[in-house]
């Protein structure tokens, strides 16, 4: 790969621009479905883009008490981490852009960075609401991250590789095996709601309690990038889930592969939208109890199943 094509890959396709467009489209799908589930008309297709452009034009306020460099850099880091993670996920082909052994772990940690930036951004903006939101965000990480990791690692265990491309390759070769991971898929989807900070796990930005949580003091461009990062994070996370848990139809022609990939993403986004329509927001103690007492055992059950299946094959 020459430097020129690498830059093209990173910035345009399937990198930043592609991901950003997908992120905004994903936000639209989510909002539209959310509205339709609630019997409302919902926003027009350009609403996420319009919101983004509007925020770009708004005043950028940095609180006087804030730790300026971290406060300013947090959104950039969030977006960069999400983008980096996207490059390691196979989308429609069996291989990602930059596969290596162990990229699953790297992607999981890259996906943790946005949450860390929410924490840092909230903590450094030195407002009570943002501080509380930051604390809640970091508390929540310890609750949902374990079941999510375990659920995502279970398929890897079965495939006997730490590379996402390797996992995809393995399940393409053994198509009968991917339904084994369905329990893990359910766990991953539920815990993703925590990662994406959506109802019932939108505790860190619970509007009626702590205004906007970590984002309370953010405005203008920085808020726009934070929101874009969250949108992209949703796409990346959903793509990861699609690659690991729904690894079928990867040998198709490029156009059919793209369509299938988009269909998978759309389906998973719809499930996420339905899930966030369905519940009341839990309290932080309830959320942690739920993740540790319900989600984590189920995720470990998946590990157990996969170990057994591996022994059987």
């Amino acid at each position: 790969m020459t430097a020129g094509t690498a830059v093209l890959h990173i910035l345009v396709f399937p990198g930043f621009l592609f991901l950003a467009v997908l992120g905004l489209a994903g936000e639209f799908v989510d909002r539209k479905l959310y509205a339709r589930f609630q019997n409302r008309v919902g926003p027009p297709w350009f609403q996420p883009l319009a919101d983004f452009v509007k925020l770009l034009g708004k005043e950028n306020v940095v609180p006087e008490e804030a730790d300026r460099p971290i406060f300013k850099l947090a959104p950039v880091f969030a977006l960069a981490a999400v983008l980096a993670a996207f490059l390691y996920i196979p989308l429609w082909g069996p291989k990602s852009l930059l596969p290596f052994d162990g990229d699953l772990i790297v992607v999981l940690y890259l996906l943790l960075i946005p949450t860390v930036t929410f924490f840092l951004g909230g903590w450094t903006s030195s407002s009570v609401f943002a501080t509380l939101g930051a604390l809640r965000a970091i508390t929540q990480v310890f609750a949902y991250e374990i079941p999510l990791f375990v659920a995502l690692l279970a398929p890897a265990l079965l495939a006997n590789t730490w590379s996402i491309s390797g996992i995809v390759h393995y399940y393409s070769a053994h198509p009968a095996l991917w339904p084994v991971n369905l329990i893990g898929l359910c766990v991953a989807m539920v815990t993703l709601l925590g990662k994406l900070e959506r109802v019932p796990f939108d505790i860190p930005e619970a509007e009626t309690e702590i205004v906007a949580g970590s984002f309370t003091e953010y405005s203008g461009r920085r808020l726009a990038f934070f929101r874009l990062a969250v949108d992209c994070e949703a796409i990346v996370a959903v793509s990861l889930v699609a690659a690991i848990f729904l690894p079928f139809g990867l040998g198709l022609a490029p156009w059919a592969g793209v369509l299938l990939y988009l269909a998978k993403v759309l389906f998973l986004l719809a499930v996420l939208a339905l899930l966030r329509t369905l519940f009341a927001r839990l309290r932080i103690d309830q959320m942690i109890a739920f993740c540790w007492k319900v989600m984590a055992p189920i995720a470990f059950l998946q590990i157990l199943i996969n170990l057994v299946v591996r022994e059987l094959i």
Binding site: F37, Q38, N39, R40, V199, P200, D202, A206, E207, T208, T277, L278, F279, A280, R281
Partner: peptide, 16 residues
């Protein structure tokens, strides 16, 4: 009440 506990669907349904 639904809105205060983050259950916006209940809000939309009852207000409809």
């Amino acid at each position: 009440a639904g809105h205060e506990i983050g259950f916006d669907t209940l809000l939309m349904y009852t207000w409809r």
